[in-house]
Amino acid sequence: MSAPVLDVRGVVKAFGSNVVLRGVDVAVAEHQVVALIGGSGSGKSTLLRCASLLETVDDGQVLLDGEDVTDPRVDADAVRRRLGVVFQAYNLFPHLSVLENVTLAPTVVHGRSRAEARDEATALLERVGLADKAGEYPDRLSGGQQQRVAIVRALAVRPRVLLLDEITSALDPELVGEVLRVVREVAEQGMTILMATHEMGFAKQVADTIAFLDAGVVLESGPPAQVLADPQEARTRQFLARVIDAGRL
């Protein structure tokens, strides 16, 4: 197997005296989907924020295509251009239309022509079934539609890896499906994905690897069948038992 696209090595991150990540290792190979699971406060979101350089790490490294992007001499803006991030709360820009949200980075950051960016955005919106909403403003869309636009916005920069931070957690249950359908499609087309999720059923179907995060470390990881069906660690079993209790697996 070739070198991973994204390689998180021994990452430590503290906010004041609160140590959130205590040396996390996660690798995502090309065309692979890795799902981060774990309770709230286990560090999933912080890990994704470190990987997307929205936070600086205290120790350890993040390698993108083999390059140490946590090196302070690296231009973080240039690194972020190669990543796509989707947030829990969509974070669309409310003063821009759907089309403007999607074409902003391709034109401003990547220097593509307006026409090219618009054509690509339209094609992507078509794929997620939102071509007719291109001229709308985000607050006219449902949560599920907004999150699909956010995925398109992240894809429009043609990222090396897509980082998804609990992207269905803020959605009404009946809207979760339409968003996950898009993610599944994107994964099937070969996108490299690292995602934090509470949707165990979805992780089981789509992920190649599941990593269970607990108290700032990856306690165990492996194929879904192994981690979800035959967990080795007591903490993992405990977590999964609670998830099953809640009817989420």
Binding site: S52, L54, D77, R80, L83, F93, V108, R153
Partner: peptide, 10 residues
């Protein structure tokens, strides 16, 4: 909003 903008490489 700033996080979203920066994550796009702005």
């Amino acid at each position: 909003q700033r996080a979203a903008a920066r994550s796009l490489g702005l």
